[in-house]
């Protein structure tokens, strides 16, 4: 079963490089902020004093762990959401909000440069890139969920603003389907 051996070798290789990959990925995601901000994001280690870095770090780590099969695939939406719930309101467009996922593709390709031209890895590399594409597509789902959530909470706030009045009019229950707590 030579193919499987190659696949395992490639995954092992990426696992060995996990820390480098994560560092480069995080650095590139940080680098899209203004230079003054990048310095701050990198230097402030307190998670409460630096919520952007904490949120991004938590999400990027989780995504990478699922991608490298260290964690269950079911967890991917939650990890994507950690990053995208921030990017969906920080960035002016979906392309900017989701670009971070495509950065991973370039980084992995560069990290695997010595293997990239080896025909023995061709099938596995192709499969790897397909999974990265899948990851990006799931990112679009999460992005849309987040933008919709933003609109839901807006409507919910408008209702709450006159919430007691609506109850006074006997219109409480049917008007008060709050956005669900499910993530």
């Amino acid at each position: 079963m030579p193919e499987k051996n190659v696949a395992m070798a490639l995954n092992d290789l990426l696992l060995q490089k996990k820390s480098d990959i994560l560092d480069r990925w995080r650095d590139q995601v940080f680098a899209s902020y203004a230079p003054e901000t990048v310095r701050f994001l990198r230097s402030q280690k307190d998670r409460f004093a630096n919520p952007i870095a904490y949120q991004l770090n938590r999400g990027l780590t989780g995504i990478l762990e699922v991608f490298l099969e260290e964690a269950e695939a079911e967890q991917i939406m939650g990890h994507l959401d950690e990053v995208i719930r921030l990017k969906a309101i920080q960035e002016a467009s979906p392309s900017r909000a989701l670009a971070f996922l495509f950065l991973l593709k370039t980084i992995i390709r560069e990290e695997l440069a010595p293997q990239a031209n080896d025909p023995a890895f061709a099938a596995e590399l192709s499969e790897l890139e397909s999974r990265l594409d899948g990851l990006a597509l799931l990112g679009f789902d999460v992005f849309m969920q987040r933008r919709e959530r933003l609109h839901e909470v807006r409507v919910s706030e408008i209702k709450r603003k006159v919430g007691a009045l609506l109850r006074r009019l006997g219109m409480g229950d049917e008007f008060f389907e709050e956005p669900s707590g499910e993530e």
Binding site: S32, A34, I89, A92, R96, F100, L103
Partner: peptide
């Protein structure tokens, strides 16, 4: 554009000072 170009990854100091960067009125 590549993804990196789209999000304007830039490791250099900005070419303009803050006074020259116009505020962009972003909806939301």
């Amino acid at each position: 554009p590549t993804p990196a170009e789209l999000i304007q990854i830039n490791y250099q100091m900005p070419s303009k000072g803050w006074m020259d960067l116009k505020a962009e009125m972003r909806p939301g």
